[in-house]
Design a protein around this nucleic acid. Sequence first.
RNA 1: GGUCCCUUCGUCUAGUGGCCUAGGAUAUCAGGUUCUCACCCUGGAGACACGGGUUCGACUCCCGUAGGGACCGCCA
Length: 476
Amino acid sequence: MGVVTRYAPSPTGALHIGGARTALFNWAFARHEGGQFLLRIEDTDKERSTAESEKLVLEALDWLGVRWDPAPGGDPLPHQSQRGPRYREAIAELLARGHAYRCTCTPAEVEAMRERAKARGDKPRYDGTCRDKQLGPDVGLPFAVRLRVPESGGWTRWEDLIAGPAGEDAAELDDFVLARTDGSAIYHFAVVVDDHDMGITHVIRGREHMSSTPRQLLIYQGLGWEPPLFGHAPLLVEAGGKKLSKRAESLSVQSYRDRGFTPETVLNYIARLGWSHGDLEVFSQADLARLFTLEGVGQSPSQVHDDKLIWLSQHYLKTLPRDVLLGHLQRFLDAEAGRPVPVDDGLARLVDLLRDRSKTLVEMASLARFYLRDDVALEPKAAAKHLLPAIAEPLGALAGALEKLSTWDRPSLEAAFRSVIEPRKLELGALAQPVRVAVTGGTVSPPIFETLEVLGRERSLRRLGAAIAVAQRGSA
RNA sequence: GGUCCCUUCGUCUAGUGGCCUAGGAUAUCAGGUUCUCACCCUGGAGACACGGGUUCGACUCCCGUAGGGACCGCCA
């Protein structure tokens, strides 16, 4: 029987990178083992679950390229909210087997007994008031259903695929609720039933779920089902060391996208958070499918820092195939230009020139601004420094030489520059920098010949002319 | 409070008793290259939380201490 993993988000907000990593680990493990990776929406909390959140989560997974397989039976995306009847059936089964019982204690009463236990210095827990009452379905009072936790025994031991030997004494657990008074199942129960029904063989999730694993094991036990194998990955924490908050908007997958990181970058980044493969740093999605093992997952929490993310971003900007890069870049180009931008030959070449100089797609689009728009303004500081009267004459000479050029390519452009600087004993930089300011408005751009070549004769000469006028006025 | 978990350079990590005067990456610093910015190249600084054991030998095993964290709901 093959490996089947799953990711089971609750749609209560955008997918943050902690969740994305869990999804990725499950995906990568399943692919590596030649198994299946399933998705399930845990929306039993009607208060907090929203369709918009679900959309955000799916969109994030899609953007990252994490694809899932349909569940047994063909449902591409099971929702817990649709499975109420099945949970009731399983609850009835557990009741019938004597591993659960009806409890008529009200939440207020339970709260009170917890308080009393705490006051005594004991662990706050349900005291078993209804455990042996043998209450039937006809008690006449609203009732919840609780698990009958075995008195003793090493029931909750398991060999964690990541953490190693784990578990605790069942005596530490109290008789927790499985079904609410309205008959609906609580999370721990729904998860067990779902994982069983979906044929999940390996549950890979965050460490925060580790201490609830014993309870789930007890449910499997009560139902007489074989539990899956568990692997609990260390948490992702914020830069300060705090747990990732659901409200950490800045850590949502979408926010990384909007900051101009490519999906390849984000995927690689989260893969290396808590997982490693020797000294390798760069992994494509295909690499992950090939190399991912649970042995490579570490034990300690990882902080989310931008350092390596930015380095990876730069790496992918430099190495991604041109069409892939342009696909990612398009929306940033459009935003920078303020209109839909057709990607012509010149723009494609410019993008190649920008690969080495951009940390993000946002920066790349910004550096392309001089090409995307004709309303580029001269930066005051740059103009004040580089467009002085003394440069007006050489710039004029250059404009004249450029106008006479029969071909507008790198060698011709360079020859034109030489014809101006050599007789005047100027350094190339003395002329290049003013020209750069003239055509891009600022002091940063790709090498000057390439910049002019890409911009084209018309636009270059027009901007040069305007700059010469500025230089002449310079100190006057 | 209880149970459980974690602890190697700032950060991500390699390391499964001798290969470790602890490796890589990133960040940082200094040089080089250069028409700007970057890229790139070279070099520097930078860690086994602490204390006890076990052992011929401990970053690696055990115990304790400290620090950090997760979980203890008719939330997921």
